[in-house]
Design a protein around this nucleic acid. Structure first.
Lengths: 211, 211, 211, 211
DNA sequence: GATGAATGAGAATTCATTCAT
DNA sequence: GATGAATGAATTCTCATTCAT
């Protein structure tokens, strides 16, 4: 009995894993139930047994991924140090999370193209915002005077999100356009450095201005 | 003869228009040839006559859209004023282009998920980079000392691209998450203001630092 | 007016020529009206104007080809010499006709696979047999004692037909199977020699038998 | 498990059977997948599941038929008796095989019109020539002096093939042209007799010549 | 819990034929 | 007499889902 349950759990996991990969690669429309079943080395019938339908499976995969990113948010809550250190840390957390979860990045993009059709259902009964900690920290920074007081926090969150995610989302195309391997470790570090610098300092030469 | 030809051209245009809309909405996999034909008020057969296949039609739509954005780049070339004014202008151009061409934004996103499979073919025989003018201007700004000399131009281009496009790409989800209509004129202006401010100044309070 | 008619006649000829080629290559089902129109450099509409339908065009092509073979039969009627010389001559006529009209050979084969569906209609109002002269000659030869008296004329006609046509019909496959170019002039002559020898003498060594 | 598998095998067989019939009747272009599925009393999807495509199914049917004829060749190898008896027997084998496998005869003809496009692929990985035993026997006969020494074996094989197959291939048209039922048992025996006589003795009256 | 066969609805693509000028 | 656009009915092929064991 126990081994049966364990087996069942393991099968579910294999399906989820395979589905995550294939949905990330090809989206909901492009994914083939047959392909998922084969990749999971499972009988298609089981997939329906456990998850009900292709769409439900997709939602389950999405839900798991939202859980992961929320966990990063949780982790970010426990960061210590000055506001600046904390913001830096949080950005780093998200950055490396994306770096290590390419499939998450892709799933989010498909979702955004599906106009959040499924995200709506999922986030309805989960915590909200994907970068909640960041918002709080930015507010804290403004209060302390570390950050400019005229910042529009909401747009800022979008922008920080953007500079992190877009890099991972479009590495392929930039690799092609610039004929440079954007997936190397070196470029990764370079990117993080740029994000922190750009985000914190913008591009103006303030020293000169102050002169 | 003329009216016949004009008709043919018009039919092609109708197909392109319909296809652009439907591909933008649902992507290559999600789009239905039947739906495109119906939207274009045309016999499906004509679509194959003019474009060969669904995929070829998709590529044609993509190509047209790349032409549009390249035209924006051209326009940006002719901007006058100080470097700062010029960069501002160029960002504004791209920003309003995206605002007015939501379908372009979506097409680019589908493409990025298809890993640039079709973009490769198209850009191979078209001009390269979509933001070439911006790159040149940023370099000019660095030379003149208006921008910091330690900027990494390429990452900067990605980031500017990111803060512009991501807003348009994810308005739906943010509307939902924040329960605010992100499509209003007001939010649009607000966003442009933020982009320019964030891009140029970052988020640090330099005045305080200099004190 | 005259040039118009001449033009019309010429167009019809071009269509017939193109159709003959394409029907011979691909059969009735495999042929594409578009392909015929393009090959004839004619507007598809004209094709329907002149011939009514694809099937009617096919029948017209077939009819022309039956006329050609009947003409060979006519020519064979006028042959002079001994019975043996005449039979030899007639076989040679048919043989070279097939050699020079590969498309005829193919059309006949398609027709035979269509179970003579169209041939029935055509030959109903045309002369009958495709090798009528041969039949008469063979009978003459029997009467004269040149040929054996126990021959079954009808089967003989089938067989002579067979040894001539099958060669042309299956040259491709034999070229492949035997890795030898069966389309060379050399093989052609070789084949004619074989047909005459085989037909007249069979394969038994009669001399030995008589010993 | 077993009955499931047996069912699968049976379904495949039903499809093959139906496909053989329909491809033989109408060729590759003329055959309709729907018609095959219906004749096989199977869902069209299964057909694609088992065979991949219409063309692949056609090739499979062809392959099976080539196997059959090769089996006849095998059987011919085991014939005993004098050379003359053996050749007679082999011709009889092939003759009755064609008589009993009309669909084979038609398939071969379609193939010859397709210029052996599929045969090439199939015979590439199967044994070669369809009448190999015959070839060997004829050579043996020549060595023993039973057959004339100046025979061209290869052309002879083509001719024997021709006189056998053409009869079956064109029975319909001859039935029509001669207004005689060429499918009767009587005509069948008559034909075999003719083939053996014609092949062995040709048409000349040798007795007379020797006088 | 697991399996492989089966299915019906639908999707892309093709074709012979006809209209409008 | 000529042309190119247009069409509707098939035709091949695909997919998510369910049955029978």
């Amino acid at each position: 009995m126990v081994s049966r349950e364990r087996n069942a759990e393991e099968s579910k996991q294999r399906i989820m894993k395979a589905a995550e990969h294939i949905f990330a690669c090809r989206g909901l429309d492009g994914a083939r139930v047959d392909a998922i079943a084969e990749a999971a080395q499972i009988n298609k019938r089981m997939l329906y047994h456990y998850f009900g339908s292709k769409e439900d499976l997709y939602m389950e995969v999405l839900r798991e991924n939202y859980k992961k990113i929320l966990a990063v948010g949780q982790k970010a809550t426990r960061v210590e140090g000055s506001v600046l250190e904390k913001v830096t840390k949080v950005i780093e957390y998200y950055f490396y999370f994306m770096a290590e979860n390419e499939e998450f990045v892709r799933l989010i993009q498909w979702e955004s193209l599906y106009q959040g059709r499924f995200t709506r259902k999922i986030l309805a009964d989960m915590a909200q915002d994907s970068l909640p900690r960041l918002k709080a920290l930015l507010e804290e920074g403004i209060r302390e005077g570390v950050f400019r007081s005229d910042l529009d926090i909401r747009h800022l969150v979008i922008s920080i999100n953007a500079v992190i995610m877009t890099f991972f989302a479009r590495r392929d195309i930039y690799s092609f356009l610039w004929d440079r391997d954007m997936k190397s470790r070196e470029v990764l570090e370079e990117r993080l450095k740029h994000i922190l610098d750009f985000t914190l300092n913008g591009i103006l030469n303030h020293r000169k201005k102050e002169e």
